[in-house]
Write a protein that binds this DNA or RNA. Structure first.
Lengths: 243, 243
DNA sequence: CGATCCGTTGACATCGGTCAACGGACGTGG
DNA sequence: CCACGTCCGTTGACCGATGTCAACGGATCG
């Protein structure tokens, strides 16, 4: 019963949807836009134009620093969306960028209001998903504040592989890993040089194989142990007893 | 026209409320509960019992690590509340603790639903406040990932002083600073030893005076410059041109 | 064919953590 | 009222994890 539509698949894992609700979601997501890797969907300071909904590929939220650095704040995978109520703000406080080639839908504020106000099942699932994103953001904070670089990187890999697997888009099997070492560094508060060294260490411990687009997780248990990864914050019962 | 009720004061700064809406909020917040410093309002793993609404004092969200560390995820000041939709989750993924003596209200799920569904002005303001909290959480991520310890600590002090001032509860005037150096360390991913050294540096540069409960910000501009503090993420127009 | 991006590696510097000790403030119980 | 324990702030000595700088090679693309 796994839907091919990542949004519906994700929402069904969080709440049950009626047939009409599913149909409505199909309609809303019917005509995604494709963009090339490294395309900004929206930049910091821009007025929000609606809710971005990722249908395919990998995107990220990020902020640039005056001194030139970049901090990745979250990865958005198929089925993810940016804040439901962005329309209430007059300016984005961060940017959203396609990391790999992406397909996405831009849902206008009116449509969102309709989804949220007139469709309790959808509203419930969307709000739940938002809570999970907030929890993920908090977990990243723990990661940055209290873990070593080894652990941070391992944690990110665990989270990414788990979330991607959950929408049927495995990326850590050695064929299509979408992140460069610079991306990993910007997400974990590390240097790309140190990401490289850390991955080398992982390879020596047989935790991963390959590198670049061929990165492959060989020992998920090992990575999880290293990172003290506890998937509870993702609030997916199905994931708690995942391998 | 500044209300004494911190919730109403905060929400009025985000959206306009009708007279009935204000009255309703007065009712909801009429009987706060007082707790001693260092009391947990709710712990990680507990089922949510409603929405906590801070009326007085300072609280924080935090997580404990298996290895024994603690990461503070956010500070909640008067007028702040935890996630509006927590009722949808079956377990808290983090804890909430009173840092100083606090007064708070626990708003039941039903009451929240009523506030959100039947009172558009309140709903709008509450959702906006939630977006600001998410933005703050992201800014903390930037802080942890891309700034030096000096900057991190300065940034936290700037944010705290700005937010507290906005609800009329100045804490950085040398009389009632509520955080210990351990608290500051747990929030910034530092060691309390290093917080101490960093504050000493701030004193030597005349950025602050005193320490402990007497910490006093002497040169807010200097701290802001050091931290590259840009209050835009707080989305308060009134704050952008603050001193 | 040159430019560019990305991964890789080595040498070196340093920020910030660890460990340890101490003293003052405060509260509590005898 | 005193003695003690505890929490918090403070400081010094030490060291290791991680950043910085620099160079190089392979892949990809126009």
């Amino acid at each position: 019963m796994l839907d091919h539509n990542p949004l519906i698949r994700k929402l069904e894992s969080l709440a049950s949807l009626s047939v009409e609700e599913r149909t409505l979601l199909e309609q809303v997501t019917a005509n995604p836009v494709a963009v090339a890797p490294r395309t900004d969907l929206i930049r910091e300071g821009d007025p929000p134009r609606g809710v971005f909904l990722i249908m395919d590929g990998l995107a990220c939220r990020y902020k640039l620093l005056p001194e030139g650095g970049r901090q990745v704040l979250a990865y958005l995978i198929p089925g993810d969306f940016c804040d439901l109520d962005v329309a209430l703000l007059d300016a984005m406080d961060h940017a959203i960028c396609a990391v790999s080639a992406c397909r996405f839908v831009l849902v206008p504020g009116d449509t969102m209001r309709c989804l949220l106000d007139d469709h309790p099942g959808i509203a419930r699932a969307l709000r739940l998903a938002t809570l999970v994103e907030a929890a993920t953001s908090r977990e990243w904070l723990v990661n940055m504040g209290r873990r070593t670089c080894d652990q941070r990187l391992a944690h990110l890999l665990c989270e990414l592989s788990l979330r991607m697997d959950a929408v049927g888009r495995t990326v850590t099997d050695g064929r299509e890993f979408p992140l460069t070492q610079v991306d990993l560094a910007d997400a974990t508060g590390m240097t790309s040089v140190h990401v490289n060294r850390t991955l080398k260490g992982f390879r020596e411990q047989s935790l991963v194989e390959g590198s670049g687009r061929q990165l492959k997780i060989m020992d998920l248990r090992g990575l999880r142990a290293l990172a003290a990864f506890d998937p509870g914050y993702l609030h997916r019962r199905a994931l708690r007893e995942a391998p």
